[in-house]
Design a binder for these strands. Structure first.
Lengths: 207, 207
DNA sequence: CTTGCGAACCGAATGCTGTTCGGTTAATAT
DNA sequence: ATATTAACCGAACAGCATTCGGTTCGCAAG
């Protein structure tokens, strides 16, 4: 085959296929060869649309982060932070295999800058000094990224009994392996609400 | 060469060389070939000591996490959490290229279980219910891992001027690129102290 | 004291990986 | 009609983790 009459590929099609592959098979399963396979195409053809694999991953990251809701700051900075953080968190929970891509991503990606800009603006608009706004949004981001990067759910060995005598304090936590998702969610919620509650004293002017 | 009179390799030597290589050149620079090179050995020889590259990375992760201080709970749970989190954070700051390894690591690794066990024990000993202790340590862990995984310092494009008009709220934050380390540190500190301050109501019995 | 065995290393090979390059055809712009 | 560019293929390259058979050494048992 040479050039087809109607294009087989497009940046969006490739990006979506990559996301589907990552969601279904994991980040390690994404290779240009496999990606090309699912699109019915040779690997080298992908390079007509993306210069490198990293660019594909950037597109995937942008696609995922695009879903994050930063509109809550109209209802005050506390609600704004809560809505943003929960939205960000739930988006990453929906695409857990993308977490490393999002986490390690450079701040160069457009959707990330868009999001950071909205959050920062929301905080400054509510009266926080710029520097403090940066720190607050940074701290909340850390919480979101951390929650997505090291879930309880992934990881514990299947034979729980092994630990019980060696790590006595963990026995309670381990019993709950099947409740890992709930633990993850509750830990994140506790961290988020506590962090926001603990911010002092709050911006003076607008509330 | 066949078998040398005195062994050239040992698990510890390999693990330390891997950590040195990661620290100096980045995680992507660690390959079994390069690792073997720095040790003056053929790649296949490494497999006499570690079954896979992942096992090498596990050893590195354990080595790094071993340095984390969990002894602070003798001075109460607040100090315990603070000391643990700051110690964990500073260890990861000292080995930033290891962050993805630590973050994505399964909870199977010994030093991680040791650490989790100590923290959980410290919280329960101070009166927190087991479930709450799990959530608290989880939330703090999220903060630490997130801070290590997405530092401000890495990532912004070098030509800052590009952003200024497109993302007006970010201009303040961007001006501080050269202060990225300070921002990272302050954000983490703000998140940590706020989170701990915001924990309510605190365990009843022991304080 | 020698015999046997496992440990430690080498060297070559296997099947992946991302990426490049020259070639071919189709669409588009002039 | 002609030139250019875009989209694809097929073959190749270097580097990757890992495996395997072979060699030599240290050590322990008889």
């Amino acid at each position: 085959m040479a050039r087809p009459r109607t294009p087989l590929l497009s940046p969006d099609r490739i990006r979506d296929a990559a996301l589907t592959l990552i969601d279904a098979q994991g980040l390690a399963a994404l290779s240009m060869r496999r990606l090309a396979d699912t699109l019915g195409v040779q690997p080298s053809s992908l390079y007509s649309h993306y210069a490198t694999k990293d660019e594909v991953l950037d597109a995937v990251a942008n696609r995922v982060v695009r879903e994050v809701d930063t509109s809550g700051f109209a209802r005050g900075w506390r609600d704004g932070l809560l809505i943003w953080a929960r939205s960000y968190h739930s988006v990453l929970v929906a695409h857990p295999n993308c977490a490393p891509v999002i986490a390690s991503g450079t701040q160069r990606r457009e959707q990330f800058l868009e999001m950071a800009n909205s959050v920062h603006g929301g905080l400054v608009g509510a009266g926080w000094p710029a520097r403090r706004a940066t720190e607050i949004s940074g701290a909340v981001k850390y919480l979101v990224i951390g929650a997505a990067s090291t879930p309880f759910g992934s990881g514990f060995a299947d034979d729980v009994q092994v630990y019980l005598d060696r790590y006595p304090h963990l026995s309670q936590a381990h019993r709950l392996r099947h409740e890992a998702n709930r633990i993850d969610h509750d830990s994140f919620e506790l961290g988020l609400t506590s962090l926001i509650r603990g911010l002092e004293p709050g911006p003076g002017q607008t509330e």
